[in-house]
Write a protein that binds this DNA or RNA. Structure first.
Lengths: 208, 208
DNA sequence: TAATGAATGCAATGAGCGGTGTAATCGGGT
DNA sequence: ACCCGATTACACCGCTCATTGCATTCATTA
């Protein structure tokens, strides 16, 4: 059960390969991203990749796992930083939202292109791997956010029956324009407007 | 300017090709879907495809356009049917939402797999084609929904400052679980719970 | 310095795929 | 019966790509 990964190869090379693979998988997708291109991007020989990974599929899976964990960590940090002590609910939620979508344009941006690739190939990925990703990635951040919202509800700041569902709603509303249009992620004003509108909808709804 | 499409080939063959191509493009994506497989799925010779289409890219574009128009038409119908005359706002919105996500499991289902493919390859698609798709597909349905919501707001049933944005929010909230988890689209009770929760969030929010 | 494992360059294999040419066949209209 | 365009089966070209084998070089350590 305790399968030990072969520690073959030097760690810096391995990191370079994974980083380069992330870049190309994110830009071109699994099929289009050639191993020669990945090797070039990583500044490494084609042949070396096979010293570190069994085949292309294993490399892909590794890239997903490492990237997912890193991004999930960042997200959880943002949640904790912005929603630990809340004074002005709307303002703090907006600040949280801006930090949240800020990740989409950070150096972690390629990750989300990778997610789109996964989403497209969802039929061809073994359900176990998919489940694992769900759990350690979006699942983890959603649980963390749900926990925070639950605390706020207990304090009386929010009226939440199902924290997990509320967390899902908040995440969607914050970055709504990204999913409908393709929003301009570099227009600071537009971003603030989007997040603010999302937070207000989350707090008050549109009912009369 | 008025480019006439070559009417070469028999219409039923052409329809079979487009239908088969939709199936395989949706399941396997643009790159993985081979022309031989498409031909087999359509019950047609490989060579025949090139009687109707210039190349794989043109076939893909045709599939997208036709599928998009069909689905957008269906969506607009649903909007009109459920939101023309509203008596019980929450109930009518829930019914609307159920019909809306019902499309995701209908015979139009492959379309949305195709959308995921587009979304993944968004970097490799000419922006003009992307814009066109945006406009005739989701853009059209969102405008239609926004228009309906605007009427309801004028009537005093809703308080909406930006109808387009509200429409986007409603669409997201209705099918929230599909985007976070991978929801079970065949559990009737779960679907109703999801939609109801989304509609309530849309109407009242979570604020205290 | 000797030895060992890692990395590299190069070549090659085998498969899959987009696209084309061609000749034979089919089917409806005259 | 004849015609003509559409369709088909088949063979083929050129290309890309994952994967491997092999010989060579490099770096570190004993």
């Amino acid at each position: 059960m305790t399968e030990r990964r072969k520690p073959a190869g030097q760690p810096d090379k391995r990191r370079a390969i994974v980083a380069g693979a992330l870049t190309l998988f994110a830009r071109d997708g699994y099929t289009r991203a050639g191993l020669d291109a990945i090797a070039a991007e990583a500044g490494v020989s084609n042949r070396t990749i096979y010293n570190h990974f069994l085949d292309k599929a294993e490399l892909f899976q590794t890239v997903i796992q490492e990237s997912t964990q890193r991004v999930a960590g960042t997200m959880v940090d943002i949640i904790d930083r912005h929603l630990s002590k809340v004074v002005d609910l709307e303002k703090d939620l907006v600040d949280f939202g801006l930090a949240w979508i800020g990740v989409l344009t950070s150096d972690l941006a390629p990750h989300f292109a990778l997610i789109r690739q996964i989403n497209a190939e969802v039929e061809h990925i073994p359900p176990a791997a998919l489940k694992l990703w769900q759990e350690t990635g979006p699942g983890r951040t959603r649980r963390e956010l749900a926990e925070r919202l639950h605390r706020l509800a207990e304090r009386g700041d929010l009226a939440i029956a199902d924290p997990a569902r509320a967390a899902g709603h908040l995440m969607l509303l914050i970055s709504a324009d990204n999913l409908t249009d393709r929003a301009d992620l570099h227009d600071e004003d537009a971003l603030r407007a989007m997040v603010t509108a999302g937070v207000r909808a989350f707090l008050h709804g549109y009912g009369r």
